[in-house]
Design a protein around this nucleic acid. Structure first.
Lengths: 232, 232
DNA sequence: CATAAAATAAAACAAACGTTTGAATTATTT
DNA sequence: AAATAATTCAAACGTTTGTTTTATTTTATG
């Protein structure tokens, strides 16, 4: 009865010809711009020039649509992270630099911003916001399970370059890095405000380099002194 | 016709006796736990054991209620930030340490977590999430105007201790710091997951100290090398 | 005690939401 | 060309939302 991958329409044509693809692209943009709850199916289907029922027809529900939007973006990003980390480790005989590891972690998500079509930019803020937004538990667990996989690969790698730090200390600092990254992705617009327009998200590569050097320095910081003498 | 500060009931009794105060406390908790849109007036008024119409009666609208919740939390935090910065500058004859400045910036919001009653904890995630969540423009502008005021005070102070950095560079890095802070405040729960339970938001003071040392190191980082030879 | 103001209560409001339905249409296969 | 599957469409569904209205109770005031 219901749908099944629309025959072909894979990579030949220029842009989303099928209704299904149009829904994905439009919804992705609107979700990112206005937030998930604030984006109605009516807004999506109108913008996609599709019928109101089409989302439920193709995806079953609004949540399922969102889930698919996430999946098609997250998986490649995390795969690229692991690929870059592997390359860095091989090139450095198992001892990659802190910058190289952080680059493998930060570049793939931030590169989405410049790559692909214009619309793909918008997903960045969505991904960034996922770190903070309270969402339907199932969707969020899917997302964070994938991230946890990544962390379990990166934390040991980082620990090898930072032998003075215990594992939970590495985890805590990488948590801070994730915060900076998520903030840059989701609220990058505010950056130009805070810097009086001198920084902007247009300089995608510049921001990445600065974030890496900032993060590398933060990861390498000496432990806070005041914790050793005092209690806790 | 409408309300006007309920006579007295200021500081004598133990906890929120007036309906108005109960609404503020309950709504603050629910907003933080479930998100703003996801929290209905019915949920709020039921939990506060008040009538459905009471929010509109006392505050005029749901947005106005949210606005008041924010205002009563943000103002003291920002005032405390400026106070701590003033103290730090006086104690150091106008040349406070990087740690001292960052402490003035980070401690007040994070201290909300431990201070006050149990419920006040929840506002932290709300404040943290405000940095990323797409919200009604007017509310958000109110919030960020206050933050911009703070930035305009802190950025020059930071620049004095980091004379090698241009102003927009300081702004960019402080932007990263805000990201780490917001992430810690809004998604602190994930920290214990990422660290296998070895870090948690219970150690409020510990996290603050670590965030300060992480941020200080990041702020002091040398400029990314790859930017000088290449383009951009 | 009477009177007005403030607060609570119950009910209804219109608007918007995600979803479902069944018929009409288009595309594909036999 | 007939039959079957896939898609599109308009309409309506039942909820839930924030808000408003009207009535009743409580509280304070002269």
């Amino acid at each position: 009865m219901k749908y099944q991958t629309p025959s072909s329409a894979s990579s030949e044509d220029s842009q989303s010809i099928t209704t299904r693809d149009r829904l994905l692209d439009v919804a992705e943009r609107l979700f990112a711009q206005r937030g998930i709850d604030a984006t109605s199916l009516r807004a999506i289907t109108t913008a996609a020039e599709a019928n109101l029922a089409s989302v439920n027809y193709y995806f079953g529900s609004k949540d399922a649509l969102f889930s698919e939007i996430l999946a098609r973006r997250i998986a490649p990003v995390n795969a690229e992270r692991l690929r870059l980390l592997d390359i860095a480790e091989k090139q450095a005989d198992g001892s990659p630099s802190l910058d190289a590891i952080l680059n493998a972690f930060l570049a793939p998500p931030l590169h989405l911003y410049a790559r692909d079509n214009e619309d793909a930019k918008h997903i960045i803020s969505l991904l960034g916001r996922l770190h903070t937004e309270p969402r339907a538990d199932e969707l969020k667990k899917l997302f964070f399970n994938e991230l946890r996989e990544i962390l379990q690969r990166f934390i040991p790698a980082l620990q090898r370059t930072l032998p003075d730090l215990e594992q939970h200390e590495v985890a805590r600092r990488l948590f801070f890095v994730v915060g900076s990254m998520a903030h840059l992705m989701s609220a990058g617009d505010e950056l130009s405000l805070a810097s009086d327009g001198l920084c902007s998200m247009e300089d995608s590569e510049v921001n990445l380099q600065h974030l890496i050097s900032f993060s590398a320095a933060g990861m390498s910081a000496t432990q806070p002194k005041s914790l050793y003498p005092s209690a806790e």
